[in-house]
Nucleic acid binder design. Structure first.
Lengths: 144, 144
DNA sequence: TTCGCTGCAAAAGTTTTGCATGCAG
DNA sequence: CTGCATGCAAAACTTTTGCAGCGAA
């Protein structure tokens, strides 16, 4: 018997190794291709379609987060975990070195409140990524 | 004889109608496909490759801005004009209906300033997309 | 007469889907 | 048994590229 909105999920070797692999990557951002190649190298090959399908499930469950840095680069994924507290902040990402910085700024909280009032739009702050250039990369580019 | 970094550009009918079309769209975001279809409908057909190639040129010149809202949706373009920065803004996107809303909020400007000071991180506000649910979609989900 | 520009088709590259088979429950 | 899951290949889709011919300067 399944609940209304969610589909019953079977436990398979493939799902287990995919999730383990993502968890083992910690804070770093990995692409679907990394998972496929990594599991292949570990002697636990999983089909490409299976990986993409399960990534969608994990994302909809909130277990992982999907980042679209740009459309020139494949999407990246990151393990979030079950603790809801870690979702209450947004991120800065450097478009050059892909460094990720956590941000918890009152301006953003205020903006989220205002947007709900003025636009009637409920922002999910945890999905927010600000793109730009970090200090190191700006210095590097200056020297070019 | 061309300057160091820039390539000499020839004036052609295609470039003229493409740029005119983008300008005529004003503030709205248009996709490459919109331009191709629009010009086709106007009796000024331009090849797909030509459109994409010229869009890249216009973007590198700063005449238009390119938005990658998500990789589920094609890139959008907008005319900027001669005063880059004057239309700097970010976006709200509904994760259910994919509606896009323009936002020009002082909280965000403030956040961008603070982030440059405290994190030494230079945010490109125009690349920012806040994801969430619009009023219509929240009402729809409530009724489920 | 240059040599950048155009347009078509094909390629590139990530993500999705159809379908036959496999296997968890 | 049931029917969701898997894996392969093909498709879907946006964007890029190769190339022969065109045309602006």
């Amino acid at each position: 018997m399944t609940m209304a909105g969610e589909k019953f999920q079977r436990n398979t070797r493939q799902k287990a190794v995919i999730l383990d692999y993502i968890k083992a990557c910690g804070d770093s951002h990995i692409r679907a291709e990394d998972i496929i190649a990594g599991l292949e190298a570990m002697g636990e090959p999983v089909g490409k379609a299976t990986v993409y399908r399960f990534l969608k499930v994990l994302e909809s469950e909130g277990q992982i987060r999907r980042y679209t840095i740009s459309d020139k680069v494949p999407a990246c994924y990151q393990y979030v975990g079950d603790q809801p507290g870690c979702r209450e902040h947004c991120h800065l990402m450097c478009i050059r070195c892909q460094k990720l910085i956590h941000v918890d700024n009152p301006c953003i909280k205020q903006f989220v409140r205002e947007t709900l009032e003025t636009e009637d739009f409920l922002i999910d702050e945890s999905k927010t990524v600000f793109y730009g250039l970090c200090r190191d990369c700006r210095n590097f580019l200056k020297q070019q």
